[in-house]
Structure formats: C-alpha cells, structure tokens
Design a binder for these strands. Sequence first.
DNA 1: TAGATTGTTAATCGATTAACAATC
DNA 2: TAGATTGTTAATCGATTAACAATC
Lengths: 221, 221
Amino acid sequence: MTARTPTDAVRDIPEATVARLPVYLRALTALGDQGITTCSSEALATAAGVNSAKLRKDLSYLGSYGTRGVGYDVDYLRYQIAREIGVTQDWPVVIVGIGNLGHALANFSGFRSRGFRVVALLDADQALHEQQVAGIVVRPFDDLEQIVRENDVAIGVISVPAFAAQDVADRMVAAGISSILNFAPTVLSVPPGVDVRKVDLSIELQILAYHEQRKAHGEPV
Amino acid sequence: MTARTPTDAVRDIPEATVARLPVYLRALTALGDQGITTCSSEALATAAGVNSAKLRKDLSYLGSYGTRGVGYDVDYLRYQIAREIGVTQDWPVVIVGIGNLGHALANFSGFRSRGFRVVALLDADQALHEQQVAGIVVRPFDDLEQIVRENDVAIGVISVPAFAAQDVADRMVAAGISSILNFAPTVLSVPPGVDVRKVDLSIELQILAYHEQRKAHGEPV
DNA sequence: TAGATTGTTAATCGATTAACAATC
DNA sequence: TAGATTGTTAATCGATTAACAATC
C-alpha cells in the first residue's frame, strides 16, 4: 500500500453533487441504451432533469472527462461516474423486514445492474422463515451477525415497523454495518461514522401537500 | 373573500425548512403519545434528529408559538405545524401501479393519520381489476379522470415500471393533478406549476455506497 | 479558421450555526 | 429575583448560476 501524497488526496465532492451523480449515471445508461455514443452537457442535463451549468460544475469535481467543442463520450463518462460512486463492483446488501415493502424491495430488479447484490433477507417472524422471496430464502434476524461477517456486508436496508427499527439499527451497527437505508418512519440514532439515509412516504407527501395548499390559495405559479 | 393585505401575505418558508416540518410534526406526535405536554427546543430537536438552533430558526418562520423560559406546548405546536403544512384535513390521493410496491403503499397504515386518504388504486392490468388491495378495489387506469374529478384529487402516486411512468404522469396532469410522488426510477417532465418529488431506492443506495467507499479507504471518520 | 462546447471563475443566493438579548 | 429558554441577529458556510476564456 502506497502512502497518499497531497496530489492524490481524495477530492472533496460536495454533498449536493454526490446526490446527483447517481442521476447522471442513470441518464448516461439510458442514452447508451438508445445507442447514443456522445452527448453535450446540454443533452445530458436535459436527460437528467438539471440545468447544464450545474451538470458541468458537478462533473468538474470528478475531473476533465469531456472534450471542448465536442461533448462527452457516453460510455467513458458513465464508467468514470460509476467508479467515483463506487459501483463498478457490487456491494452486498441485507434487507431486514420482509413485509409488503420488504417484498417489493427484494423483488426490485435494478439492484444488480446498479451496483448492489442482495445477499440475505431477514425477518424476526418465524412464519416467514424458509419461504422464498424473489428467489432468496428468508432467514431469522439472529443470523445477521453471521451473514454480515461471511459476506462482508457494509450496507443494510431496514423495512420493519417503526417500533422495531432502532433495535434493528443497533444490531446492524454492532454487526459492523456502517451504512443504513431506513424505510421505517422513525429517527434512528447511530454512532458517528455510520451513515443513515431515510426514505419516508409521509414526509414526501406532506411536502407536496404544503405546496399544493399554497397553490390552492391563489398564488401565481 | 377578503383581499390579502401586505401584513397577512403568505410567509415565504425556505424549502429546507418545509422539508423538516413533517419531521417535527412526527416528533411532536410521538412526544404527545408518551404523555409529554411541554418540551424545550432542545428536547424536540433531539427527538427530530436535528440541532436546536436549526429547529428554533425553522419554527421562527411559522410564528412565535413557544414561551421563553418554558418551551413549547406539544399539542399546540403540533396543531400549528399541521396547519402550516396543510394536513389538518385529509388530502385525497390516487395510487397508480399496484405491483409489489403499490401493494406496500396501499397497505401503508399511516396515510389517514398523517393527512392523506387513498381514494383509488389504479392499474392498467385487467387481471388486477376487481381485486381488493388493502380493502380497496383496483380499478382500470382509464378511470383516472373520473376519479380525479369526483374526488377533487390533487396528489397522485406513481408506482408503475419506469417505461410507463411518463405516460401516467401526463395523464395525471391532464386530469388536473398538480402534485406527483414518483417511485419509478425515471425523470418525469411536467409543465410548470406541477410539483414532482421522487423516491428512488438505487439513488439512495448509491449515495451510501459513495460514502462507504471512502470509509473503506482509510479516511478518519 | 469558424463554430461549438467544456471547465472555471466570480457573483449571488440560500442554509446553517453560534451567540445572546428578550422575556417568561 | 434568578434561572431557563425562546426568537432573532449576524457571521459563516455551501450551493447555484451566468458568463466566458480555453480549447477542441
């Protein structure tokens, strides 16, 4: 292992940019699927739903992967972004909580192509054990530690009811998971160094309702 | 209807604050359920997972609903936030696409208590019609316009595959829906005045992967 | 060379934070 | 009154945007 010199220090990519890189990655994949091999920042920005100034600024944090006067090579830029995000190889993922939502997540077909691989489905409910969901056998929640160890799992998905989510998170952290995607409508507390992102239906709907309410009261749009 | 004077002009609440109001609402509900009637900004901030300076700043956009030296009345603040968001009454919602995810959404029990009411489940697949999901009969997608008209629906949820999402969005907009929650992994284009929020599993996981990758390379946390 | 488009700069805008005066 | 806690100010930080020099 070589020492890191100032020159190859990890570039500090702004969080807002990090959140958009996956969107660009998807847009590039879509363009590639259409047989498009080169695109301008304007075209890619449109496909990604942002403006081109923002796109170019975002890409500038990664390096100079375009050609002035020409644009970007779709496949090349796609690879560079995938490498920056870290999805050129698959990340093993465990899903805990195989209710309606867990089912939907397990059946989500895009995992593999987008850099993830579901290595286990876990649920505390014995009635579910040995059942297959999306071709994977549901196992007891207590198998968590073993699965994390054997598969080097760093990312966990929580789709249990709110009351159980903190316990699941604690067990995940104890087992060595350091990134959690939480679908339970509750605030998780985790130690420093563990990342939590949440996906919350009610919150999204309420944000829409706020704006909808204002529209209804006659403001110009 | 009285004219709006400069004094009662609609306050302009920053978008970042709007996105946190639902979190505060939920935290207040949880505190109330625990029998807590008064709380400080510090206590509420902890329950909501933010720092207290941000919480107080956020609340200041709504008005002065606390008491210096004392804190906030939980029920009173809860009501004021609910009123500001616009969820003191229920918003009618339609869900289009009753696959795995649509099932999970339809079965989500928190709709009613959080300001929403599912008035219809729609799917283009005839095989699903007349089936009941979460006690609601699945109807043909072509019933959309009628349902929106009869129930005054302003908010639509899209849980169809990516390739069908733009069509669904177009039909929703044409029918008069002006707020869309999109679970399909695709960029929707909609006319000005229509709000779209997206929930995207792959994007969330990729954001986690980016940070996870950096942790793995030995940066201090 | 002329036209096109990137990558970067600098200005602007919005969000966060700490500190504290106001006030219960 | 003394202690506690809000609501607001002002400084800082980060994100967005437009414009354009660099360069294919």
